[in-house]
Nucleic acid binder design. Sequence first.
DNA 1: AATTGGTTTGCAATTGAGTTGCACTTAATG
DNA 2: CATTAAGTGCAACTCAATTGCAAACCAATT
Lengths: 144, 144
Amino acid sequence: MTQTNEHCNAAETLQGAGLSQTTQRMAVLEIIIKADGPLSAADILNRTDPKQKINKVTIYRILSSFKERRIIRELPTDQGMNLYEMACRHNPIHPHFYCKTCRIMSCLPPLTLSQAMDWFAGSNAFRIDDVHVNLSGVCRRCRE
Amino acid sequence: MTQTNEHCNAAETLQGAGLSQTTQRMAVLEIIIKADGPLSAADILNRTDPKQKINKVTIYRILSSFKERRIIRELPTDQGMNLYEMACRHNPIHPHFYCKTCRIMSCLPPLTLSQAMDWFAGSNAFRIDDVHVNLSGVCRRCRE
DNA sequence: AATTGGTTTGCAATTGAGTTGCACTTAATG
DNA sequence: CATTAAGTGCAACTCAATTGCAAACCAATT
Ligand SMILES: [Mn+2]
Ligand SMILES: [Mn+2]
Ligand SMILES: [Zn+2]
Ligand SMILES: [Zn+2]
């Protein structure tokens, strides 16, 4: 239910993605690696060293380039903002649970939809109000 | 791949949900029922009768109350806006495909995740870049 | 019919996440 | 070091969605 990405190394990850190793990128990546759940851009800003605060715009640009290079995944919420988590081999794609009250997104174990249904039927950990399954990419018409 | 909700009746639906039958609510609901895919608030506004244009705020409030009463489902996109579709018995919950190029969201047949993987592996209809599975509701800690 | 009170709508102003333009700074390379 | 493309900070901006408030609507009484 929590991310187990303590194995990822920020410097190596940047190098592997062909991104130069700036202090801002290192700081943002280390915050995401250390996090025990998905973070918003504001969460990341709040966790930066107050002595060398990174500009909000820079954080958005870094997140955007990390996402593009598949270092992180972007998780849209119903609340009009995105959350981010590591997309490394230690953190395979999985469902999430977003609590509308405390606004915390929890990671769930990877399951098929039907397994998930069974699991939730027998679980009272969450009261599920909504299920969203969304794929995105480029449709056939737009590729030709 | 398209919605088959031609069976839903706007007036009955409002009555069943305990909502009074105003001209604005009827217009919005009929637009969503007739649509052949999920619509944004702006899409709905564009489809209202120009002679009796409904205010944008009213549309948001109507969508909000429909969502609350489970008449419609809200589908967040990566693009910072929500899409809406009928949540009636004729339109069971299912995955969606959002094309980042033409910005059209297509409805996909209901499948388990593993079925979906197989289906997509053999299909070249879409180039899938992202998969999001999100549940939301209220967590245990927030319920007690 | 007129009165009442609660609900719904319209308009203007506002919020807040995310973006853009441009000048300044920094990291990588020789 | 010196050069230069890449990265960053700041201010202004965009745009979906929200809020406050007054006017309009509607149903239920008098
Ligand atoms: Mn996760
Ligand atoms: Mn759909
Ligand atoms: Zn909670
Ligand atoms: Zn397309």
